[in-house]
Amino acid sequence: MTEQSHRPRTGAVVVFYHPDAACVERVNRLASVMHCVVIDNTPAMPSGRPLVLSSEIEYLPNGENVGIARALNQGVEALLRRGAESAILFDQDSEPPSELLTELPSLIAAANASGDRVALIGPAYEDKRLGGVAPFVRFRPWKLERIAPEGSELIDVDFLITSGSCINLKYWSTIGPMDDALFIDFVDLEWCVRAKRAGFRVLGAPWIRLAHELGSEPVRVLGRIYPMHSPLRHYYLFRNAIALIRRPYLPFSWKSTELMKLPIRIVIYSLFPSERMKHLKMAIRGLSDGWRGKLGPLA
């Protein structure tokens, strides 16, 4: 590996939304390792002083929730202004291991040095509530191909979750920013689809693990565990699924699996959580808005 591969210019983007003290402690530790940009989507948060953030952190408060996509775009643009070559993206509750912070940027730099067109590399994520380490995924008609995160070789995948993933900023302008009209949910998937359509690779690093909790407390239905979200998140989930199904550049293989999942999700999210009717109403509203192409934040 070249010296550049060992010492790439990289930074982290962390999105805050009503962070607690543990979130602040995590981002302060992260800032001691690399330059860190915090985008705060917490409403009415005018400055970083109440958070007791490290002076090393570049803190950008929005004063409102502008969505995960726009916040990530803001953080990436801040790193680009500093000349970064790669950006590691995090949710506020992610606790990255040290090897993630060093190896992912080095893998991106090595790909650039060899001419390999890699857009994104990410770890396998582990949510103990959902049964441990999640498999990597490739789209196949009517059913996802799940790939066990094993071995020491990078794995070509069709998408990675945002948190813990390392973006190759060399190709950021070619692929384009995250779609902020989606606001939240499927933002990572839509970006990965565009990256792959443009001829870039999306790779999973199975030997690197990130502890990450997906949603709130999950529910078990017929032996399977499903992540649970708030009624508002379910609105965005159903809305964006329909909106993306209607877009011609999303692959049929993904659309077919989503069409299979939608009725199952409606049943689960309307029968098992508390406030069942609220979940159902928000899901139906999301389906309607997605069909009509009504995107952005829910007014």
Rank of each mutant, 00 (worst) to 15 (best):
P8N: 09
G11Q: 02
P19F: 13
D20P: 00
R26S: 14
V33H: 13
V33C: 13
V37T: 10
I39Y: 01
S55G: 13
E56V: 03
L60N: 10
V66C: 12
A69G: 07
Q74P: 00
E77M: 07
A78Y: 08
R82N: 08
A84C: 04
I88M: 14
I88D: 02
Q92A: 14
Q92W: 04
P96H: 10
L101C: 08
A109I: 01
A110I: 03
G122W: 06
K128R: 11
K128G: 09
R129T: 02
G132C: 06
V133C: 12
L144M: 12
I161M: 14
Y171Q: 03
S173H: 07
M178H: 15
D180I: 01
F183E: 02
F186I: 00
C192M: 07
G199P: 04
G199D: 10
W207P: 00
A211N: 06
A211K: 03
L214R: 05
L214N: 06
S216A: 13
R247K: 10
P248V: 00
S256N: 12
E258L: 14
I264R: 15
R265Q: 14
S270R: 02
S274V: 10
L280G: 05
K281L: 12
W291Q: 07
R292S: 09
L295M: 14
L295F: 12
L295A: 06
L295I: 05
L298P: 01
